[in-house]
Design a protein around this nucleic acid. Sequence first.
DNA 1: AGCTGGAGATAAACCGGTTTAGCTAGGTTC
DNA 2: GAACCTAGCTAAACCGGTTTATCTCCAGCT
Lengths: 328, 328
Amino acid sequence: MKRPTIKDIALRSGVSKGAVSLALNGRPGVSDSTRERVLSVAAALGYRPSSTARALSGARADAVGLVLARPLGAEAFFFRLIGGIQAELPMALLLQVVGDLDEEVELYRRWWAEHRVDGVFLVDLRVDDPRVAVVEELGLPAVVIGGAGHHGNVASVWADDAKAMTSVVEHLTSLGHRRIARVAGLPSLLHTARRDAAFRAAVPSGVIVSADYTDSRGAAATRELLLGAEPPTAIVYDNDVMAVAGVGVAAELGVTVPAELSIVAWDDSPLCRLIHPPLTALSRDTSAFGARAARALLAVLAGASPIDTEDTTPVLVARASTGHSSRS
Amino acid sequence: MKRPTIKDIALRSGVSKGAVSLALNGRPGVSDSTRERVLSVAAALGYRPSSTARALSGARADAVGLVLARPLGAEAFFFRLIGGIQAELPMALLLQVVGDLDEEVELYRRWWAEHRVDGVFLVDLRVDDPRVAVVEELGLPAVVIGGAGHHGNVASVWADDAKAMTSVVEHLTSLGHRRIARVAGLPSLLHTARRDAAFRAAVPSGVIVSADYTDSRGAAATRELLLGAEPPTAIVYDNDVMAVAGVGVAAELGVTVPAELSIVAWDDSPLCRLIHPPLTALSRDTSAFGARAARALLAVLAGASPIDTEDTTPVLVARASTGHSSRS
DNA sequence: AGCTGGAGATAAACCGGTTTAGCTAGGTTC
DNA sequence: GAACCTAGCTAAACCGGTTTATCTCCAGCT
């Protein structure tokens, strides 16, 4: 048995294709009795509209897109984000990994030209990111995820990293820490820049070392800091993997945590909870964040004017890796 | 400037739509000179065929699908898998998360009927999984990922879990362990059943406790085992999170690792490497596994007859969490 | 010279929808 | 009773490709 098309419904209910289309989409132009008849025939046949055909005639594509330019960044973050997005989306998510930003932009152009997606999520925003301008030029509905601040006429869902950073620093200073350092993520990412700025504002004398989210670079950065002239008494890491690597380096150098060194991780995870000592971490519900982004995109697709939505600020979960400074 | 269509090329090169189609697809029916002219016009205009339109007229959809029925299972595994798949795929991946298997099956039917995908990956195979029969019935090209054994006429990419389990048990028995237990993943999953069987064959007296990959259930299972009448001297966990939770429970109960209890995790991860003590783990290249699955699906799409491909067997990486049994 | 065959191209149908122009019947209005 | 609406519907065009039936040449053969 073939899948029923709009033509089959038209035949069986004795009306034209056009009338069926109007009836099924709840648009005026057919009488209530006809509409009812068409709907019941459609239901009886188990009719499902073809989103492919719809997309071709200019209507919805019934899919939204997400492009990841490698490197992916923090693994667990994206997976939870995508899970959260999906949970809220009634349509499919077209996912593609590309090599660089140029390919990503090219892909948006193609997808949009082909009506393959109705909208896209923009992640991993860079400093001076070209993508915002592109989607605006195309008129491609989009939501910027995690890029604090306003981006042209594009909707944005973000968390207040600056406030979160401030809460971390307050936690540490209240414990007597004065020499606080930061091991940052990729400098090209916008949120790294924002966190850098917030950190500098809160700790004018603080040292920032750039890394790339990997354990090896996290370990190297930690070594650099602890072997320096004025080693910090507390380090804030931009993700969990680097923070855990930092714990390892400290142990290796005979620096006890938290007595001699306090450690804070950005983004909580099983890793933070299960390691010894458990890490104080900035926790957020990434899945809920994705869901919020999905709702934002749906709103834009429904015609709402793009607005910026602030997600809940990551909250500091104090665990055993932070304690009073011994050198205050 | 609008995106050029096949019609624009036809106009500018002075031939018909049909001839352009033949020329662009390298099919016979046009002369070499015409073909060349059409190709150069297409290149000059920056022509990109619309996969939406192609899909409608029955050709390739230029996308493959992956449906995840919640619960997702081991997070990191899927993310790396998808990354590996994407790296090898020249097309987009349609990803959708659904609530249960029935929805998943319904989605395959729709996608296929609409020519929305050219093929699908089947993951998380269940014992007596209905999906294999469905894709066979539909004639929807598919690749089963991680379901050991042969599945009807559907291609399969799998790793030899039985052999891997044997290597784990051999490692432990060579260290003098006789009372070995297993904390298993979801019993409904096929690979859980396969590992169970392999474990039973290798350790006839071994106890198996079912869990669900979460740290809480992993901890509970460990507690149950260690507080039992004949506590094991070694435990094999079905994922990293449960193994790490097991370490925590052991510490809590005053059972030292590895002196009194050896621990092995299935699937290596930063978590295994960074915890104290570092966990002996079954390591595999999940990303490469995904790439292999992608190649398998591409082969099926290209018309190859579906075959079973064996991935490299997970290899045991011995670390500090396993040691000689103190009770041998 | 007439017939056949094949290469090269075109026009048109088709995929499954949406959308627009146009038609018909019935009811108002003056 | 002619003119005018409007609701309700149909026919047809359209989206951007693929595919098939058909048509035109021209070369080759007898």
